[in-house]
Design a protein around this nucleic acid. Structure first.
Ligand code: ZN
Length: 287
DNA sequence: AATGCCGGGCG
DNA sequence: CGCCCGGCATT
């Protein structure tokens, strides 16, 4: 009695993205163009230019913390999609933007001048339990296209936009001084995602528009990232105030809704919906 | 530690 | 297929 769908084996999209989403299967760095050249929408299994990650480590992606604050190019990873199944699981994209001072526009080209990080050479974060395997492209963050108007620009850009729970992350500021986030351009990940930050603080990711991307949001949707993509600069920038870089990542986030298990308790497993009983995605308390 | 649930595995 | 569970990302 219920709009039951099939449980057992359902489509990859049954519930958002596959688990692999979280774990970067492969990562690759894109050139300044930010084009998914080497990685097409569906990189079968092994992508040439991609770097395969030993998918054995506990949790590479969540290395989080406030570690790096690099500003360099950017990297993203690609997904391994089944040739037929359009599921674009495991994939994450990261992008960041650098900041600049708010007032004098004289920071034109001081990119990695500030942060004393080991430059583009991928920062190996202190692996504490997990390690981040990211590949970085030692290249300068050259904004590809002309500055994008984040302000009075267009409305929401048309995008393929798969609506999944992609998220983004942010980073802290490198320099002790007060820096503001700048607007970024757009960036597209392997999945065709397009990230765009607008002056109103909103963020457009693959078609989905996230309004109110403040520190809080960034907070909960944060993840590790280290590459920064410098881009256009827009003073009226974003929200929060002190973030300098933002990193986008496609990962799964746990919905807040309580599911059978938590609602009825383990001792009442019989009340759970079948899905829950089978450790599948709950079908009673949808998100 | 507790949850949520994908992918498998078994009958 | 119904039913379970290992394993693991999150929280
Ligand atoms: Zn349920």
């Amino acid at each position: 009695m219920m709009p039951n769908t099939r449980l057992g084996k359902r489509s990859p999209f049954g519930a958002l993205v596959g688990p692999e989403t979280t774990r970067p299967g492969v990562i690759m760095a894109t050139g300044p163009q930010g084009d998914p050249q080497a990685v097409s929408t569906s990189c079968g299994r092994s992508v040439s230019t991609c770097i395969n990650v030993p998918r054995r480590l506990g949790s590479a992606p969540s290395v989080c913390l406030s570690l790096v604050n690099i500003l360099s190019p950017m990297m993203l990873c690609c997904s391994r999609t089944a040739p037929q199944e359009v599921d674009m699981d495991e994939l994450m994209a990261a992008m960041v933007l650098s900041s600049l001072s708010c007032s004098p526009p004289q920071e034109t080209q001081n990119k990695s001048n500030e942060t004393p990080l080991m430059d583009a050479g991928a920062i190996e974060l202190s692996d504490s339990g997990s390690s981040g395997y990211w590949s970085v492209d030692p290249r300068s963050p050259a904004p590809s296209s002309p500055t994008d108007e984040a302000g009075g620009g267009s409305a929401t850009p048309p995008d393929e936009g798969l609506d999944m729970e992609l998220d983004q992350v942010l980073f802290e500021e490198p320099a002790p001084r007060k820096r503001r986030v700048s607007m970024t351009r757009r960036w597209r990940s392997d999945g065709g995602q397009m990230v765009r930050w607008r002056s109103d603080g909103g963020l457009t990711v693959g078609g989905a528009y996230h309004r109110d991307v403040g520190e809080q949001w960034l907070q909960q949707h944060s993840a590790p990232c280290r590459l920064v993509f410098l881009d256009s600069v827009i003073p009226s920038a974003a929200s929060g105030g002190a973030l300098t870089a933002v990193c986008l990542i496609f990962r799964r986030i746990r919905s807040e809704a309580k599911k059978c298990r938590k609602v009825y308790g383990i001792e009442h497993r019989e009340l759970w919906c079948t899905a829950c009983r089978w450790k599948k995605a709950c079908q009673r308390f949808l998100d």
